[in-house]
Design a protein around this nucleic acid. Structure first.
Lengths: 246, 246
DNA sequence: CTGGAATAACGGTCAGACCATTAGCCACAA
DNA sequence: TTGTGGCTAATGGTCTGACCGTTATTCCAG
């Protein structure tokens, strides 16, 4: 066996026929990453881009669709319309996570475990950095939750909002984004939300209140203990559930 | 002033003109989320879809581009080609994070802090669940790092691979994804990588080795201590750096 | 049984056209 | 002066129909 199959295997690079539209996408993405295009900037019109890149409008449009789907640009129609560079929203990241979950082998149990790590891990920062305003805001959320409970209108959204509210106290947007992203997939599978909501109700709200108290008292250990209990209870409910798609 | 301007203000609902291609995207996304389309399934050909939806091929193609960009489908050319439902890769999520970072106000310091929380937070699980094979694999990575160092060829990629390798020990794909996603943005800004790499070199590798030892000895506290030191050093280097785009 | 040519299915791209939406301008009237 | 309505041009959204390159399959020749 002395042919090129063995000996020259790595002499030949995999030929990849990249789509023309993909090349355009990469080029524009690079401009954004390098900061040569920043939020709010307007790209040339489609017909302009056609000429600059030397391709047809269809191709340019496909590139724009991809960039739009990635959240890098936003497209407005009409005069003075066009493609504007925009910062991708957190919702979009959450959407991505939701898609990932509905397709891959990520189970609710996996997600919950990751959530626990993050939400417990941030507590030292929360306790350290929460302002009085932050804490007041959390207390308001707890109160709202209790009222909703009395009206029998408690939803997972309220719970999610509270957890995001806690993450806001870190004053670190990266962490906020992370926590927020993780609540998308949870809410997405309605079955679970319906299942978990009643159980979370009164007791969950009480735990929220206890958490706020611990944060207010700058008691990290107590906060961690409350949060761990709180999330473990959720973990127990979703344990061994199949992936959301099923 | 008794005209409709005041009195009927809310009689008129805001009309929203959704793109046709977007309607198609939503429809297919729904099918995937509901599990009516699963990984590996093949969608009808573009020309087929045209007829089913009653739109032109251009429109169908734009819809497919969006779905492809979201990672929900993968497109193959040639006979028997077409759009196949695929599980979105972790790289895509990381890509999203990278975009978010280059556009929003996320600074390297923010990212590093979030990283620390996660990578330290997972250690209890790592220590508990790491198999002998996992540990052997980590040791191999450390060794590779040392060799690369001797050849003066140490890159941040090696470091990133090690950290991802640690997360693999949790045997939780959600956590793996998360850690992997966070290494994208770090590597992306080359300037930082260049700056940090030399400093990470020998000492970083030694810390990696120490971490593996702690994991092997099932010593959670030691592992946390090593990891914290390790990441804090990185944090110090990137602290107060401007956002990646700058 | 093997290698290669023909075929058909499919996505990728192009060119040109028409429609709907929108911002800006301007004239006219209150 | 003010504001109302219409005109116009810029721009994205969609359609039609065509041609090309890639690829799996089939089948024939050696």
């Amino acid at each position: 066996m002395s042919d090129a199959t063995d000996t020259g295997a790595d002499l030949f690079k995999r030929v990849s026929v990249e789509r023309v539209s993909q090349v355009i996408v990469d080029q524009i993405k690079l401009l954004v990453r390098e900061g040569k295009l920043s939020t709010g900037d307007r790209l040339p019109s489609e017909r302009d881009l056609c000429q600059r890149f030397g391709v047809s409008r269809v191709t340019v449009r496909e590139a724009l669709r991809v960039l739009e789907a990635s959240g890098l640009i936003e497209i407005r129609v009409g005069a003075r319309g066009g493609a504007f560079v925009s910062s991708p929203t957190r919702e979009r990241l959450g959407e991505g996570l939701a898609d990932l979950m509905s397709l891959s082998s990520l189970t609710p149990a996996h997600i919950t475990e990751a959530r626990t790590i993050i939400e417990v891990g941030i507590l030292p920062f929360v306790v350290e950095r929460a302002t009085e305003a932050d804490i007041a805001s959390l207390r308001r959320m707890v109160e709202e939750g209790r009222e909703a409970l009395d009206r029998n209108a408690y939803t997972m959204n309220l719970s999610a909002a509270f957890h995001v509210g806690v993450s806001v106290c870190t004053h670190n947007p990266a962490i906020e984004t992370l926590v927020q992203s993780f609540h998308g997939p949870m809410l997405l599978s309605l079955r679970q939300a319906q299942l978990v909501a009643p159980a979370m109700g009164r007791r969950g709200t009480d735990e929220h209140a206890a958490l706020v108290d611990a944060i207010g008292a700058r008691d990290t250990e107590a906060a961690i203990k409350v949060m761990t209990t709180h999330l473990d209870r959720t973990a127990g409910l979703v344990r061994d559930m199949p992936p959301a798609g099923a």
